[in-house]
Write a protein that binds this DNA or RNA. Structure first.
Lengths: 210, 210, 210, 210
DNA sequence: TATGAATGAGCTTTCATTCAT
DNA sequence: AATGAATGAAAGCTCATTCAT
């Protein structure tokens, strides 16, 4: 299981090249540790993952974990800080088409699923460790609220254009996102696409007879 | 903090009388251990709670935990099995009034919040430990699906009476419940009552212009 | 080096028999750990002695050290508390003969050397670890002051009987004890008996011409 | 707290000019390390002080400690060798006035206290680490014996001048010094000046009735 | 000459679990 | 049926030391 060659999504995500290589964030070994921690914390949980197993999975000596991160706790915090997918999420939600609301919401939902799928490990860590780690909870909260703000902003525009009634857009965005999160990370039995379609219909059309 | 006399909600919940009193399930000490585990697992998480601290909080000798539950793992499983609030939840959701849909959904939501608040510890354990413990995940899943079934059943009646359009009631119930769970157990910053009102409006009236 | 059978000075020192054997202080294993700690701390110092080596030298499993003493620090504190030789020292200093002052002081000195030699390990620990451990420093201080008080008390009697000039007896006792301690525990190159004789002469007769 | 610019008493103490400036002993960084080690070893003890913290306190890169001293052990040995205050002590004890014995001893005592106070850190290291480090013990022993020799030499002169009885001057000097050391470095509760006065009186006048 | 990243052995401590009584 | 003393594996973390540059 410990693989020396696999490194999922770290190197590619860094776009800022050109700075001196001795910036700690750029060390190969450090990234390997973050990669390993990401996988193992998501899979087994923070408490059930030993720092030794992280080092092993990363293919580095055990002492290096503490050399780079000081403590296991800080490893987690640095992980959720540096591997946050909030920028990615905001960017992808912002580029929503100005199409009709239904298509737009479906599109937003699919983009959300895409990001969460790509960054599933870190997303699961956020959900799971929030209960024990205030710092993680803060990130998790920030991420939700930011996403809701972006979605609400889009809805505001739609309302302004007369395509939507003057509903409480923040609340609508919240309900929308809660359901996306639930399906993506908590209730895994649901088919995301089908659920998304039905949810969007429900939210747009309402259940009351017209 | 460890109290010898406090035993919140255990004894009263057992309705099965008639069986021999020396059945282990009915032992006072056993119940104390479950009570303590419930509180500590919810507060600190399963991994971060030692069996010793459970025994201490329960006011029983340390060996008794393993006498009654064989292993820490089994203590958790027995806990979520015996302290399930599914019956309570089903009963309270079933007694929904036949009033108009809006009032009914608001009522259902409030009842749900009431049950979850009363059984908060066990609810948090279900959410938190699902990721690591398939047995817990199964209970957690069963609980959601059962509640959704009850709510959908009610909605079916409403549709039959012509008070609601012929929507996919199971999906509507699911969206409804997901949001309740999210607000009750995950996003604690939200005011449940206000959120509930807006969510119900959204689901019933739809966002599209009429 | 680890000996299973050697247990220097513990069992013999306990005179209070008759109490239930499950008093922790009386456990054989616990005493073995204290014995081992006493030897190793004296020999290598507290910091340089691992709890594992203490357990090994005591012939008990490593976990037992923490079962009985909670922490390495507490092991040291319990050690200097339970193995204090203050009572022994006070008793032996009190039984000073009423003979002439010179013989009495020589006698006191020899008794002191005898006690310190018999309890050398713990005495060295007191001296050595005082710098880092306030609790040990407190014991060490208490021991000195108590011994000084006993000696001064004797000198007071001698002064009252006219055998000594009305000197500051507490100071004289202090000077006397400081030298004894120095020779017994710090400057090991000195021959105690010869040093004692000369010191007593000096203190009694004075260096000034008469 | 770690100061880059503070360097208490090192540079000034080196009187040996004329040798090539690139002798390691004269490096600024090397002296900073010795300064830091002196402070930290005295404060926390050798074992409890990490080489990293020494480098940090000295404001030099961690690797430099081993570059200059090879090992932590050797750092200690070089420290007590190079920072010995024996020359200082001998010089100051030698310049004793030829006044009457009482004044002379009081003066010697005060000078001793002055030197030890000024070089307190190194003095504490000598006392504390002697038990574990033979090399340190040797220095500590040498220092005592040298001081005793100087004092005894003075006393010999006094005896020759008829100001003192023909006592064993080496022994008298030893008792005198032991007490000074004890008060200066071990029993910190004592007021040095008052203790000194009483001790000198005791040693000169004797306790026996005249 | 000087540096700081890297290493791994070893430390203290915790804890689920066992078992004699 | 019930207990708590006992165990040892494993955890997080520290640190003297090395070495490529």
């Amino acid at each position: 299981m410990p693989g020396r060659t696999r490194r999922p999504e770290s190197a590619s995500r860094q776009g800022n090249s050109g700075n001196p290589a001795h910036e700690p964030e750029r060390t190969q070994a450090r990234q390997s540790i973050l990669d390993a921690a990401q996988v193992l914390f998501a899979l087994q949980g923070f408490d059930a993952t030993s720092t030794k197993s992280v080092a092993q999975e990363a293919g580095v000596p055990a002492g290096l974990v503490f050399y780079y991160f000081t403590s296991k706790q800080k490893l987690l915090e640095d992980l959720v800080r540096e591997r946050s997918f909030l920028p990615e999420l905001e960017q992808i939600l912002r580029s929503a088409p100005e199409a009709d609301p239904k298509q737009a919401l479906l599109d937003l939902g699919r983009r959300f699923f895409a990001v969460v799928t790509r960054r599933e490990a870190i997303a699961r860590i956020l959900v799971r460790e929030s209960a024990s780690h205030p710092q993680v909870a803060a990130r998790w909260h920030e991420m939700r609220e930011s996403a809701i703000a972006v979605i609400a902003e889009y809805l505001d525009g739609t309302v302004a254009r007369g395509c939507l009634r003057a509903v409480k857009t923040e609340r609508l965005a919240r309900v929308f996102l809660y359901n996306l999160i639930f399906v993506a990370l908590i209730d895994e039995a649901q088919d995301p696409e089908a659920f998304l379609a039905d949810m969007v219909s429900a939210l747009l059309e309402g259940a009351l007879p017209r």
